[in-house]
Design a binder for these strands. Structure first.
Lengths: 205, 205
DNA sequence: CGTTTTCTTGACTCAGCTCAACGTACGTGG
DNA sequence: CCACGTACGTTGAGCTGAGTCAAGAAAACG
């Protein structure tokens, strides 16, 4: 069990992953960097996810604490030999990776086809869902902290921080959300937020 | 073993997957549709991938033949009980899903941060890699067919078909590629193509 | 062949980017 | 306690890359 302060990278040595970590609390961001400095956050992970790409990786992705973290880490070898023994463990990992794949594909739709406004709405909805799925499904009014600062939200949504700021202002003005302070968000009009976020064909509701 | 003509959907009944299929030959596209018709292709799958999201799915994605296909299909139940018996099968599936996750995250970077020109270059590079990884790594001149028509490439890259067409013209004019006919592409300047495609920080080369 | 679908090109528009100024919160040390 | 610096967020003005709309060219198809 260890603590990691926000903004710090971990679990890698050079560009090889050396450890797997269970998230006890806090939020982890995975990001990709281009040679000229352009950056894209490709995933956020929440407790109780396991961080660390199993098996060999060709893929350069950096792992960083988005908030202060509490982790439970294992060396790479340890987990891999555990997996070899316990098929059930691999099954659970597989399930998590499938969820991550679904998430990634949802964001592909957002980055490829949604407007700035819809992307920000999607981010807020996505965050609220991860923080308290139950409250959301009951349609209660919800208050929560943004897990990322504006520039990180921008890197997640493929926008600039200015555009993110403007769209948040717009959502505030149209009474979809309210800001208690810069990083505390309250959802006022959940149906509208959902409509903006899921401009997708709804499977059901 | 069955054949599926290009453009046809398969493997689903309503929005539930009913079968898994091994791709013998051809290319499969997975796409998401928004209520107003906006569309995003979220993955392409090549032989010998297994098509079909294992276990339960909450995620609405349609599965369609991008080219004529040869498939080997199993009913959903059959594969799931096979998995329960043979942990090795789950391991192989898991590996494939991890590759898909890596791909999806590479495209997140492309859709979030790359220009139209870089996205089209990435698509050409990606396609060539999947069709003949060896020839590419030897740096040979490569000729291949685009697996998708312009409007599908656009849906994959989060662009319009006009923009895709213009960028292909531009790559042709700058002698990075040549077109033998509309759908046959030859890579002339591989280093340049790679530079455009992987504006990423190169792990190694 | 004519018909239909796909691709290319041009002219114009606009959502989101860039650059720049300013506001606000917080910490540090004089 | 206040002055100052630093990091973060907001807002404005103007620009531009990609979208839209429209017209033709070129394949594909029966």
């Amino acid at each position: 069990m260890q603590s990691i302060p926000a903004e710090q990278q971990f679990g890698m040595e050079g560009d090889k992953p050396v450890a797997y970590s269970n998230i006890i609390s806090g939020i982890v961001k995975l990001s990709k960097l281009m040679a000229d400095g352009r950056q894209q956050i490709v995933a956020l992970q929440f407790a109780p996810d396991l961080v660390g790409r199993p098996f060999d990786i060709t893929n350069k992705t950096s792992i960083e604490a988005a908030t202060d973290l509490k982790l439970c880490s294992f060396p790479r070898k340890a987990l891999e030999s555990l997996i070899a023994e316990a098929p059930d463990l691999e099954h659970r990992l597989h399930q998590q990776n499938l969820r991550e794949l679904d998430d990634a594909r949802d964001w592909l739709l957002a980055l490829g086809r949604k407007t700035a406004n819809e992307r920000v709405a999607s981010f807020i909805y996505f965050t609220a869902l991860h923080i308290d799925p139950d409250a959301l499904s009951k349609g209660q009014m919800i208050r929560f902290q943004f897990p990322l600062k504006r520039s990180d939200i921008a890197d997640f949504l493929g926008l600039t921080l200015e555009t993110v700021s403007r769209q948040i202002t717009k959502l505030r003005q149209s009474k979809v959300i309210a800001l208690i302070d810069n990083s505390t968000c309250e959802i006022i009009d959940l149906p509208m937020l959902r409509k903006l976020a899921e401009a997708e064909e709804l499977p059901k509701l």
